[in-house]
Design a protein around this nucleic acid. Sequence first.
DNA 1: TTGAAAGCGCTAACAG
DNA 2: CTGTTAGCGCTTTCAA
Lengths: 341, 341
Amino acid sequence: MNVKLKDIADRTGFSINTVSRALREDSRISEATRVTIRRIANEMGYIPNVVAGSMRSNRSRTIGIISADSANPFFAEVIQGIEEKARKANYSILLINTEEQAANERDAIRLLLGRQVDGLVIAPVYNDEENLALYRELTIPYIFVGRYVDGMQDHSILHGDVEGQALAVDHLLRHGHRKILYIAGPKNISNTIDRLQGLTQAYHAHNLEIDESYILSSSGHMEDGYARVNQALNRGLSFTAVVCFNDLLAIGALKSLHENSLSVPDDVEVFGFDNLAMSQFMQPRLTTVEVPKNRLGQKAVEELVRHIEDPAYPYTTVNMKPRLILRESTLANHMDNNATH
Amino acid sequence: MNVKLKDIADRTGFSINTVSRALREDSRISEATRVTIRRIANEMGYIPNVVAGSMRSNRSRTIGIISADSANPFFAEVIQGIEEKARKANYSILLINTEEQAANERDAIRLLLGRQVDGLVIAPVYNDEENLALYRELTIPYIFVGRYVDGMQDHSILHGDVEGQALAVDHLLRHGHRKILYIAGPKNISNTIDRLQGLTQAYHAHNLEIDESYILSSSGHMEDGYARVNQALNRGLSFTAVVCFNDLLAIGALKSLHENSLSVPDDVEVFGFDNLAMSQFMQPRLTTVEVPKNRLGQKAVEELVRHIEDPAYPYTTVNMKPRLILRESTLANHMDNNATH
DNA sequence: TTGAAAGCGCTAACAG
DNA sequence: CTGTTAGCGCTTTCAA
C-alpha cells in the first residue's frame, strides 16, 4: 500500500491532523514541525490521495471537458489550451467526446457530475430542450466554449462568428463576386447558425439577395468539402468563389477544384474559417478567418475557475474579435491591406 | 445538496445498503425491491457519487493519459481511440500533456497516482533514467502507446517503426534513388530511433552506406519540414527524394519544394509517415506509411483494462503491421501494386 | 500550535 | 433477501 498520512504521523510522532496541515502549508504550524514533516513525507515518497481529500472538502479540483470530437484539429487546439491552463491552475481534466449528439452530451454531463467535477467546459449542441433544462438545473459552474446554447449566451466564450463570416463574404462581394458557393456546417451548433447569419448580413449590406441553391449543408469535414464542390460542379452550378464554414471544408474544396482543373484563386477564390495550423501549408495557402483556439480554451478555464472560486461571480458573454487572414487562396490585388501569413 | 443513497433509503424504507445493492444490480435482491428502488432513484434524479464509491472499493474506473501534445494530429487521433474505448469500457480519462519533457512526465505520473487512477496510458520519452526507475516501481498497470521505453518494450503497443521506415526507403532505393534526404524526428522518443534504424537497414540491404549529411534532425512539426528542406536547398544539397519522420514534416517539405519550383513527384519524391487524415488532401496527395492511430489508442485501453482486471495477465509487446500508402507524392511507374487512397 | 473526534458517501464484511 | 457495522484517507470542527 502507498504511504498515507497515518504512516507519516507514526513516523514523526505528530498526529495525522498536524501532518495534514503541515503538508497543506496551513498557518499555525510551527516552522520546525512543518520542515520535519515535509522532509519525512518526501523521504517516504508520500503522494496525497486527492480523491480522499476531495471527498471531505467537497472540491475535486477536476474539470469536465465535453468536446464534440477531440480529434478534430479545431477542438484539439482548444483542448490543448484548456489542458494547459487547467494544469497551471492545479486542476485536472476529464475528457469526453459527444460526436455532436445531444444524448451523449446529457450522458457526459451526468457522468461528470457523478465524478464530482468542480465545473464544466462544454462545446454544446445548440438547441436541445432536454439539455437546456439540464443546464438550468446545474449546481456547478459551466462555460460553453466557442459556441453557445440558445437562451444562455452569457455562459459562453465566443469569437465573433457572425462578424467573422460577414467580413469574409463582404470581402468577396466588394471584389465583385456574385456567385458565391457557401458550404455550411453541421446543424445544431451555434456556429453554423451564426455564420449563416453573417453571410446573410453581408449580402444585405450590399443590397443583394442570397440564392439558396448556393448554400450547401455539410457536417464540416474535409471529405464534405471535397464532395460538395464536386457535386456543385457536376450539377453545372457556376461560381467564382467558395466560402466554407471551416478550414477543413475549404481544404476539401481546394482538392476538388484542383482535380477539376480549376485554378485557385484565379478561377475560383476560396475562403475558410478557423485558421488551423495546417491551413497555411495548403497549396495554395488558405485564406481564412482567425479564431484564437488555444486562447479560447485558456479563457474558458480562466472564467470557469473564477466561477468555481467565487460562486457570486456573474456570468457574461466573453467575445473575442475575429480577423481575416488573407493568403493565397484569394486574390490580393485590391485595397485591403490586412494581409498576413 | 444532491440526492444520496440515504435519501433514497429514507424514502423507500430500505436500508442504505439495500439501495446500494439494488442500484448496482447485485444479485440476492428481490426483483420487486430492485424495481421500486430504481424507480424512486430515477424519480429523485439520483446520480451515484463515483468518488465516494471508488474510495471504498479502491477502484476509480479512471485511466490517466499522458500524451506529448494532444493538439498534434497524431496524438489527437490516438486519444480519440483511447477516449472512445475507455468510455465504452466504463472508464473515464484524465488527460495531461508533457510537451515531450521527461520532468513533466514524472509530474504527470505522480499527479495521476494521487488521483488514484486504475492505470496509465503513456506516450513516453525514450530513455530517462529517473522515469525508468519510476515506472519500475509503479504498482498500477501501464501501457506505452506507439512508443516504448528502453528496457521495457513489453509494456508497449507498437506499429512497426523499423519495418515501416525500411519499407519506405527500400521503395525509393529500388527505384534508383541514391540521394535521399531524411528528416528525422525529435530526440528521446523511440520512434525516431527506430525509424532511423529502418532507414539504415534499407540502405544496408542494398549494400549502400548512408551519407550522414543527408540526415537532418527536427522536432517533427510542419514548420521544421519546411525549414529543413529550405535549408538543404540553400546549402546546395542535391537530392531526388525526401523521406520524413512523419506526415507533418512531409507537409512542410511539400510546401518548401513547391515554393522552390521543384515539382513533386517529378523532380523530388516525398514520403511521409503516419497517414494523417489531412495527408490525402495535400497537393499532391502524400505517400506515407499507415499507422492505425485510433486503433492504437483503442488497443492500448483494451490491454490496460485487461491488466487492471487481471493483475496476473502478463505483459507482452503488441505489434501492429505497417503498410505503405502510395499516393501522388511518389511516382507510380513501377512494379509495386499496393497503391491506395 | 497541536490533538481528538466526526464524517464526506459509499461499499464490504458479517450477521441474520 | 435485507440490515448493521465498519471504514476507505482525508479535512473539518471543536477542544485543549
